[in-house]
Nucleic acid binder design. Structure first.
Ligand SMILES: [Mn+2]
Ligand SMILES: [Mn+2]
Ligand SMILES: [Zn+2]
Ligand SMILES: [Zn+2]
Lengths: 142, 142
DNA sequence: AATCTACATTATAATAATTCTAAACTATTG
DNA sequence: CAATAGTTTAGAATTATTATAATGTAGATT
């Protein structure tokens, strides 16, 4: 979703009612220069900082998953102990900083196109994603 | 760990006491032709099937993480809702079947070497892993 | 072989993340 | 505006995992 777009329209487009809470969440998620990565907890914090009214935790979960299902958010698996979401829903690779637990997007140009030779009968490829784990030279390397 | 190896020795090598439970878990995990992928739940089931005595759930968690820390198991993140472990601890890529929720190992030859152009200051690359999600042509594609 | 002791195991309780429930509320439609 | 279907909410329930503290045991010491 582009910045400052018509959130009400975008929600209607995919059959979601443009409720107060959903519009607020759109603003928090998409009204910014760059896409970003977050956990549900991050998001709850961000919402309560930017708002006077609160959105209940259950609604945040529901809405994040509703947005995910409609293709407005993407879930990223890195750490089995944490769920990350990404407002950048296009296919892209990631660096994961094991010191700070931060996700960093790769550009097109950062990693050459992956060439897959194997083919699994009856199955088609839905996505190909690379995760590059990095850490400081001195630090633990897990 | 190779099949039918000296588990007691292997445990001692890394400073783990060769207790009854750990030896049993080694047998369940490593006495087989091929490496495999499992969840804690799978493993608990496998153990109780192959045994008369039970190993408590807490011990299974503790031991899996102890083995992971010592490099005898690897944790794989695919699905934020499930933790998978791998008895193949070498660097390798995976296919993930979204229909059956099965992990499939890639051979060296299945995916060309990944060339990473970006470099993050002060950080070094710990691992580079590719996950290819596949699903049946007809099925849901997430 | 009996005893010792550090470490491991265990059952259980605790915590954390997420989902369910069912009642109250609200956006849309007519 | 009233009817309706969809949505929000607090709190309970569920699930996965970790912490705790009493008990057990491997390996060392006598
Ligand atoms: Mn999800
Ligand atoms: Mn782990
Ligand atoms: Zn991203
Ligand atoms: Zn594997």
């Amino acid at each position: 979703m582009p910045k400052n777009c018509n959130f009400i329209g975008k929600l209607r487009e995919v059959g979601l009612r443009p409720t107060k809470q959903r519009i607020k969440m759109c603003e928090v998620l998409y009204n910014r220069e760059k896409t970003f990565h977050f956990t549900i907890n991050d998001l709850v914090k961000m919402i309560s900082e930017k708002m006077n009214e609160k959105i209940s935790l259950a609604t945040v979960y529901n809405t994040v998953h509703a947005f995910e299902k409609k293709g407005y958010l993407k879930e990223i698996s890195i750490d089995s102990h944490k769920s990350y979401f990404d407002t950048n829903t296009s296919a892209h690779h990631h660096f994961f900083d094991e010191d700070t637990h931060e996700l960093i997007d790769c550009d097109e140009s950062d990693i050459d196109k992956i060439n897959i030779r194997k083919n699994i009968t009856g199955k088609k490829i839905n996505s190909v994603e690379v995760l590059v784990r990095v850490a400081g030279d001195n630090q633990t390397q897990k």
